[in-house]
Amino acid sequence: MANVTFMNNPVTLLGKEVAVGDKAPDFTVLANDLSAVTLADSKGKTRLISVIPSIDTGVCSSQTRKFNEEVASLGEDVFLLTVSADLPFAQARWCAAEGLDNVQIVSDHRDLSFGEAYGVVIKELRLLARSVFVIDKDDKVSYVEYVGEGTDHPDYENAIEAVKKLSK
């Protein structure tokens, strides 16, 4: 498993770690209107999945805005999904406050389906570890980053480059 710390304290990640080349595991998370969202809902697109501990923190907020800005210019064949264990209502409040209408933030709070499938559930906190996954149109994982320290930013450039390679 990935060695991850949160605020410089080691944490235990639950679930199965995924690697480049794996078939992307399916999951069920909740949209802000409480409807189910699955991996299959974006089949046929290149997916960038940005995972954050909580939308109400500075790094998570920045990460969500940064990927939203970057992906907006990549065309209709690229789908961005931001996942956290925040309640859907908190996610909707953040989107409204930030004026972001087209960002898709989903909640894994109900049953940690995504977190367990991708090995990012922080056992000690019941939050998701900061990570980024790029999945191709055929559901193959093509990029993975488990961020070593939960309060650090991911490698935005490498993630976006991975998406661009698939969307050519």
Rank of each mutant, 00 (worst) to 15 (best):
M7H: 11
F27K: 01
T28L: 11
T28Y: 08
G44R: 12
A129Y: 09
Q63V: 07
D152H: 15
E149A: 14
R47W: 00
V51S: 05
D41V: 11
L166D: 01
C60Q: 04
K45L: 09
R130I: 09
Q104S: 15
F114Y: 09
A92H: 10
H153G: 07
L74S: 10
I135M: 08
V121K: 06
F79R: 07
L80K: 12
D138P: 03
N158L: 11
D101Q: 13
D139R: 12
V71M: 08
K123V: 00
V83H: 05
A72L: 09
D101H: 07
F133W: 10
F67C: 14
R126V: 08
D139H: 14
P88E: 01
I105D: 01
E69C: 06
V11A: 06
C95G: 11
D86Q: 11
D155S: 15
R47F: 00
S54T: 10
I135T: 06
K140L: 10
C60K: 04
A159R: 02
P25V: 05
A40V: 11
D155C: 06
K164I: 11
P154D: 05
K43Q: 15
K168I: 14
K123E: 07
K45R: 11
L14S: 10
S84Y: 02
R93I: 02
D26P: 05
A129P: 04
A85C: 12
L87I: 09
E149R: 15
L87W: 12
A85D: 00
S167W: 14
V18M: 11
T82A: 13
K66I: 10
R47P: 03
V11N: 00
V121E: 00
T64L: 11
A117P: 07
V18Q: 06
D136V: 05
T57S: 15
Y156K: 07
N32D: 01
V106M: 06
Y118P: 10
A40Y: 00
A97C: 02
F133L: 02
R126G: 05
K140M: 13
N32W: 02
D86E: 05
V120D: 00
S142K: 14
V120T: 11
T46W: 04
D33E: 01
N102H: 15
N3E: 12
V29M: 09
